[in-house]
């Protein structure tokens, strides 16, 4: 069942001869329980695709449908609400608040929305991510990998239906990168959510159910799990 749909989505920047078509006409669907990779060279339009899919910017034309809601018709305030409810972003650089401990990062979400993980689920998540001992530490006291795992915990804590990760492993060494992918995979399967990982690291695609390629704003399906196995 499609939880995220892009229908005839286009995005261009600028006008006239300076016009850049960052995303050519794109049709895309992601289903529950799927871990999807989007690979492609720098500047090919991966981030543009991901941010449009997550309602962070509006397309020049076309529709984005998240959980049966058409984002294109909504203003930023309403899109912001949908992001809060449906989407967990994991960013290239850690998206932690510097003056909050790991635990408080989660508490902040409790302040702004309902339906987050229970105490027990959070314990389990900490354990799965191996950050249980770090809960009262501030981001500055964590290593790069620990921070990235805390950021993943934060993205998952709100029980989003879609996780969008933009180069989540860019600042990690290979071992850490594999670890993070393993976690994303198990979360996606266990919680029946949808995860889209944008990366230019082709070593990570083995974890994914579907692999798309982005070249010059054109998104093409490269591999499906059956083909990989």
């Amino acid at each position: 069942m499609a939880i995220l749909e892009l229908n005839q989505v286009k995005k261009s920047f600028g006008t006239g001869h300076k016009k850049v078509e960052a995303l050519k006409e794109t049709n895309f669907q992601a289903n529950k329980g799927e871990l999807v990779a989007v690979i492609g060279p720098s500047g090919s339009g991966k981030s543009t695709f991901l941010t449009i899919a997550g309602g962070l910017q509006t397309p020049s034309s076309g529709d984005i449908i998240i959980n049966n809601q058409n984002l294109t018709a909504l203003n930023e305030k309403k899109r912001s609400k949908i992001r809060l409810k449906e989407i967990g972003f994991i960013l290239q650089s850690s998206n932690l608040i510097p003056f909050l401990t790991v635990d408080m990062q989660m508490k902040l979400l409790d302040k702004v929305k309902k339906g987050n993980m229970t105490k027990e689920e959070l314990e389990q998540l900490y354990e799965d991510l191996g950050i249980g001992d770090l809960r009262s530490k501030y981001p500055v006291d964590l290593s790069g990998g620990e921070r990235q795992r805390a950021a993943i915990a934060k993205a998952l804590y709100s029980n989003p239906s879609i996780i969008l990760a933009d180069e989540p492993t860019a600042s990690l060494d290979s071992d850490r990168a594999y670890e993070v992918m393993e976690l994303l995979k198990s979360e996606t399967k266990n919680k029946n959510t949808t995860t889209i990982v944008v990366t230019h690291d082709i070593r990570l695609i083995g974890y994914c159910d579907k692999v798309y390629n982005m070249t010059d704003g054109v998104l093409t399906l490269e591999k499906e799990k059956q083909a990989v196995e």
């Binding site: 912001s80 949908i82 809060l84 972003f89 702004v112």
Partner: peptide
């Protein structure tokens, strides 16, 4: 950038 991250996450301007 910190505010941006929170806004991306969906935390409202109002909050």
């Amino acid at each position: 950038s910190m505010f941006g991250v929170m806004k991306a996450q969906g935390i409202s301007n109002r909050y």
